[in-house]
Amino acid sequence: MKLNYRKFGEGHPLIIAHGLYGSSDNWVSIAKELATNFEVFLIDQRNHGASPHTNSHTYQDLKEDLLEFMDDHHIEKATLLGHSMGGKTVMFFAAEYPERVSNLLVADIAPKNYSEISAGSSQNIDHKNIVSAMLNFKFDNFKSRTEIDQKLSEDIKSKRVRQFLLKNLKRDGEKKFSWKLNIETISKFLPQIMDGMNKNDFIHGKGISGFPVLFMRGANSNYITDDDHNLIRTIFPYAEITTIPKAGHWLHAEQPKLLVKTIEYFVLD
């Protein structure tokens, strides 16, 4: 699959994979900062942004899309940075193609299966609710983003989440609104998107090594908990784990300058 992308700067290749409901747009300001030291590629993953829509959305798909992208752009080795779903993409890629990775950076996601978390946890409930609200939204008669936001607020209480989702709005030639992302396929494959890596594949010294690995978690997020450290280090034995203060799950939006400094310090020093 030929992914849509943006490119900034020159230097060692750094590829950024966005999260669920996201796109390359979300990372432009970060990419411009990193472009001083890297050739930064922002990709739209399949069914998101301006990349093609398909009827499948698994991590097998996403990692093979990334491989094809690197091959098409003659990138032998790259620093990979992924947030949330994109973090899972780069983790699965690193497990399959470690020789193509120079550094692995994972933003606020663990390699676990999030659908197995207890019903009291926000992650699983939020995603099911968000996908359902987007899938069932009827755009007829809505003339502005404000009206759409007000209607969405009935199902999605968080203003920050709604603002993020509204970046996926587009208009056709008749000025009618629709979603840019392929919410139908995403809805069908949500269990696969929530899936994780199998810890048993990496025990008995089979963990992934050979390149530096950094997990960055938001201090106000519960996507990476202290209990996840064992799983992370089973799969990535030499992984470092750092916490970005005053940030939740969307740490690139909440602490962009600190995130850039953290990336540069880890990769360049």
Score class of each variant (00 low, 15 high):
Leu42Pro: 01
Ala95Val: 00
Glu76Asn: 11
Pro98Arg: 02
Tyr97Trp: 04
Leu104Ala: 15
His74Tyr: 12
Val28Arg: 11
Tyr21Gln: 08
His73Ala: 05
Phe41Cys: 05
Gly87Tyr: 09
Leu20Phe: 12
Asn103Cys: 14
Leu104Asp: 14
Pro52Tyr: 09
Ser84Trp: 13
Phe93Leu: 06
Pro13Thr: 08
Tyr97Pro: 00
Ala78Val: 09
Lys63Asp: 03
Phe8His: 15
Asp71His: 06
Lys77Leu: 09
Leu80Gly: 09
Tyr97Phe: 11
Ser23His: 07
Phe38Arg: 09
Leu105Val: 15
Leu3Trp: 04
Asn37Val: 06
Thr58Trp: 07
Thr79Asn: 04
Leu14Arg: 11
Thr58Lys: 02
Ser51Val: 01
Ser56Ile: 03
Tyr59Val: 05
Tyr21Cys: 11
Ile75Gln: 11
Leu20His: 05
Leu67Cys: 01
Thr54Asp: 04
Glu96Val: 00
Arg46Gln: 06
Ala95Cys: 01
Ser56Trp: 02
Leu62Arg: 01
Ala50Asn: 11
Ser84Pro: 10
Lys77Ile: 11
Glu68Cys: 00
Ile75Cys: 08
Asp71Cys: 00
Leu42Trp: 12
Glu99Lys: 13
Phe41Arg: 05
Leu62Ala: 01
Glu99Ile: 06
Ala35Ser: 15
Pro98His: 02
Phe92Lys: 10
Glu10Ser: 14
Phe69Ala: 00
Arg6Met: 13
Thr89Ala: 04
Thr54Trp: 04
Trp27Thr: 04
Phe8Ser: 06
Asn47His: 02
Leu104Tyr: 13
Ser23Ile: 06
Asp72Ala: 14
Arg100Leu: 04
Ala94Leu: 03
Phe38Leu: 11
Phe38Pro: 09
Glu96Cys: 00
Asn47Ser: 02
Glu99Met: 10
Lys32His: 14
Gly49Pro: 01
His74Cys: 10
Val90Ile: 14
Leu20Tyr: 08
Leu34Lys: 07
Val101Glu: 02
Gln60Tyr: 05
Leu42Gly: 06
Leu105Met: 15
